[in-house]
Design a protein around this nucleic acid. Structure first.
Length: 417
RNA sequence: GGAGAGGUGUCAGAGUGGUCUAAUGUGUCUGAUUCGAAAUCAGAUGUCCUGAGAGGGACCGGGGGUUCGAAUCCCUCCCUCUCCGCCA
């Protein structure tokens, strides 16, 4: 959520922000503003009526609640109660509408985010390494994996359906090694605390990080229990501090967690149908930070560098892309994608997405911090993949492939195998 | 899943219809005392909304109801604990 004061006092900046996101008209801002005004005036009215009621009731109490005087007062209070009731429904309705619209308003983009409609207008900010050269035509990872008998897509489909897979032998062990390598790097060198928590969470958690209510079709929800499978450990990690106030001396908090991630990929029919690129379940090591607001953009650079370090050590060529307004997710104020080169697919593939959410998630999830002697304030949250494990394995298979249709294990992973 | 108990401020814990403006203890901060500290004494100390401020309103697990008035009574949901059952 953005600060409602911005909607009240400077709706034009919200409008410009929508335009930059290529979202003009997606949220009816005029309606939102009208609802907010009506809601606040009714709230004021009911506060005043309540004040009167409280005073009169107290007087009745002092009169011991009996006698003609008290009876007359009771009638007065009854009248006030009736009046309160007369617009209570409208009030509840306004509150609900305001909340729904407010939750749908995307975050304010940072000034450094470039203009642009979609991913074609993202800006490459740096590249690392170079595309590997082959004396043969490199194959996609799914061909190599299938031929080697370590990726079994047919049986994945038998077990669960399209976009599921089965790892056998080397692939299963390699992905486990990749996860261990990443966790060790982030905990021993990059200063993150390793955590592990639920893969299934309640609606409050899904709302806190911005998945609900708008994008319900994207996720698996167990209606019977009111629980959802997490699409990323960001949900688990960020909601750890939901409804809490953190003392300033405990900031920043840097957490990492590996999890399986579950996505319905509702809007992606026909895209990336082969291989490990777009699947319903994948494993990922996630990085999440809770920071003092003035530091959050520095922290974003560091977070991105922490994710890049994984690829550097694996010797995989990549580029870092600053997402344009139209491609930045609703919760984020600024996002860097890290894209690894895939020689077999002959394109770059997103392997990490690092975002600064400012106080957008903190407001939704009521995560605050307190400086000594001051009032609680919203902190800033950030997250990034560090990295998606399945895609990392796919990148290794493609970049380290050999002419005999197999592939080598990167040096840093050997001790994990 | 069955039976029972319970959810109150940083924490512990009282409060079963009207000075609850939530007792008391504890923690924290400030002051007094002290060379300094401990101890002791005095005072302060929650969150949200609204308002320029004074102030006002809301919050005793969530939601709803009864009442002139609800932490307190009723309904409902959630959670925790104990015992039993089941279980990696």
């Amino acid at each position: 959520m953005i600060d409602p004061k911005i909607i009240r006092d400077d709706i034009e900046s919200v409008r410009r922000n929508h335009a930059k996101r290529n979202m003009t008209g997606v949220v009816n801002l005029d309606e939102l503003k009208n609802i907010d005004e009506e809601r606040r005036s009714l709230n004021l009215k009911s506060d005043e009526l309540r004040e009167k009621r409280n005073t009169l009731s107290k007087t009745i109490g002092q009169l011991k609640g009996q006698g003609p005087e008290a009876e007359a007062l009771k009638k007065d209070v009854q009248a006030i109660a009736d009046e309160l009731k007369s617009f209570a429904d409208r009030q509840a309705e306004l509150e609900k509408m305001f909340n729904e619209l407010h939750l749908s308003v995307p975050n304010m983009l940072d000034e450094s985010v470039p203009e642009g409609k979609d991913e074609k207008e993202n800006v490459v900010v740096r590249t690392w390494g170079a595309k590997p050269e082959f004396s043969f035509t490199p194959k996609p990872h799914y061909e190599i994996g299938t031929d080697m008998g370590i990726l079994d897509f047919e049986r994945g489909v038998k077990l669960a359906g399209a976009r599921f897979y089965l790892y056998r032998g080397l692939a299963a062990r390699l992905e486990r090694s990749i996860i261990n390598f990443m966790l060790d790097l982030h905990t021993k060198e990059n200063g993150y605390e390793e955590t592990f928590g639920p893969f299934i969470v309640n609606d409050e958690s899904m709302t806190g990080t911005g998945q609900y209510p708008k994008f319900k079709d994207e996720y698996y929800r167990i209606d019977r229990d009111g629980l959802s499978l997490i699409p990323t450990a960001e949900v688990t990690l960020t909601n750890i501090y939901r409804d809490e106030i953190i003392e300033e001396e405990n900031l920043p908090i840097h957490l990492t967690m590996q999890s399986s991630c579950f996505r319905r990929e509702a809007g992606a029919a026909g895209r990336d149908t082969r291989g490990l690129v777009r699947v319903h379940q994948f494993q990922k090591v996630e990085l999440v930070k809770f920071v003092e607001p003035s530091t959050s953009f520095d922290e974003l650079e560091k977070l991105t560098a922490n994710a890049e370090e994984v690829l550097k050590r694996l010797g995989l060529h990549y580029r870092v892309v600053l997402l344009c307004g139209g491609d930045t997710s609703a919760s984020s104020a600024k996002t860097y994608d890290i894209e690894v080169w895939m020689p077999g697919l002959d394109r770059y593939m997103e392997i990490s997405s690092c975002s600064n959410f400012l106080e957008y998630q903190a407001r939704r999830a009521m995560i605050r911090y307190r400086k000594k002697g001051e009032k609680p304030a919203y902190l800033h949250t950030l997250n990034g993949s560090g990295l998606a494990a399945g895609r990392t394995m796919a990148a290794i298979i493609e970049n380290y492939q050999t002419s005999d249709g197999r592939f080598e294990i990167p040096e840093v992973l050997k001790k994990y195998m």
